[in-house]
Design a protein around this nucleic acid. Structure first.
Lengths: 239, 239
DNA sequence: AAGCCTATGTATAACTA
DNA sequence: TTAGTTATACATAGGCT
């Protein structure tokens, strides 16, 4: 690999030399990659980032980078991204659950969705709400007299409300687990919430499948000439 | 690249030969890749799939395959995944907003968070809630007599409640837009909701940065015929 | 910067154990 | 099979345009 004197494998300090060498060796590497592809019936994907952050790619014929990367992924243990993504989905699901419970809470207070409740449950709900009305009356009174006392003795704290929701939520999650539900199957509620934004309610289902990962669609964003942004050199084979 | 007779660059039919050649050339390729890395201060990612679908990888030191593919991605036009992922995040944010509003709704009905309301608002809230209590009493009565009449004349429909939430939600979204908020900045509320699951409330912030893409969940389906599943040889450098 | 040249160091096909 | 040897073909550093 040398001529007129052996070279050391260490960073070439001279910028021009470094770039020339990069270009030459890149071609050599890609040629070897291609020979390997043909001789051994293999698939190769090489991505090169030069020191100036330009991107260069070699890809065996009859493949896509996505495909090779899919294969790559399939073989490896779930990586950081995977974890991250799963966490995101889990978060989404939990938010949906909490949301559902909150909606039920609201609708019951408004006097809807009372079908599932027993007589005694209805009684306590009534009492609770009457307590709330009482609280509001107090508040009203204070509002008139101009008092704004933040700490109220008897009022149930927000923390309690939260805990109650958490309790309900956990119960539902448990139940869901028993039914064998899984993250990717969002219940109808999720879509319902999504429907909010379009108002109508006929928004297409979000459809969050188990993803494998995807790479580029179209390559060649070529701002090649002036040397503006990063560009990509795709090395294609003629064979 | 040859010895004792020039070879043609075409598929080696003899399986053994092909495998031996693959192995040797793979090492050669990786060595060259490493030299390129060091000499030219470049980053290289090579993924090799042999004809028997075994996976081999070379990666420059001080990098991750993810990082290189992120860079790769960054150069290309946003792909389907990117879109998908962004949509997911947007969804998450919206759920958070809706959730927040629901919580306010609930807490007000319970008699909390009344500070921001004017006297007349308090009055109408009181009336509303008393209306609800009346509804609940009716329901209770029907529950006693065993009647379950789903359609009630005067009751506010669930649709109305939803529309109201949508209205509030949109208003807040608009407001958020004006404040220049953006998808990736989840407000404190988001974390608050997340705090539910740990009960304590000191869960680490979810930290959702602008992602470029996300990877698969759990693979390893390895229905590989002969030996075990597909495996990977990661070539590491000594230098 | 971009090509050619060529002496020299490497990679490796075929062979052997 | 996997490892070591060797003759040869190839890749390329440094020059020169």
């Amino acid at each position: 690999m040398m001529a007129r004197g052996k070279i050391q494998i260490k960073r070439i300090e001279n910028t021009t030399n470094r770039q020339v060498t990069f270009s030459k060796r890149k071609n050599g590497l890609f040629k070897k990659a291609h020979e390997l592809t043909v001789l051994c019936d293999a698939k190769v994907s090489i991505i090169l980032l030069s020191s100036t952050d330009k991107l260069h790619e070699y890809l065996s014929p009859n493949t896509s980078t996505k495909q090779i990367y899919d294969d790559y992924q399939r073989t490896l243990r779930p990586d950081l991204w995977d974890t991250h993504y799963k966490r995101l989905q889990e978060t989404l699901r939990k938010l949906g659950e909490v949301n559902k419970n909150l909606q039920i809470e609201v609708s019951r207070r408004v006097g809807q969705n009372l079908e599932g409740l027993t007589f005694s449950e209805l009684c306590s709900l009534e009492q609770e709400i009457e307590g709330s009305v009482k609280d509001i009356r107090e508040k009203k009174y204070k509002s008139i007299t101009g008092q704004t006392d933040t700490a109220r003795k008897k009022a149930r704290s927000a923390e309690d409300a939260h805990k109650r929701l958490v309790y309900e939520y956990n119960a539902r999650e448990e139940e869901a687990r028993h039914r064998g539900q899984w993250v990717h199957e969002n219940g109808g509620h999720y879509e319902a919430v999504m429907g909010y934004e379009s108002g109508g309610g006929s928004a297409p289902p979000p459809h969050v499948p188990i993803p494998v990962f995807a790479l580029c669609a179209d390559h060649h964003s070529s701002t090649h000439a002036g040397g503006g942004g990063p560009d990509i050199t795709t090395y294609r084979l003629l064979q």
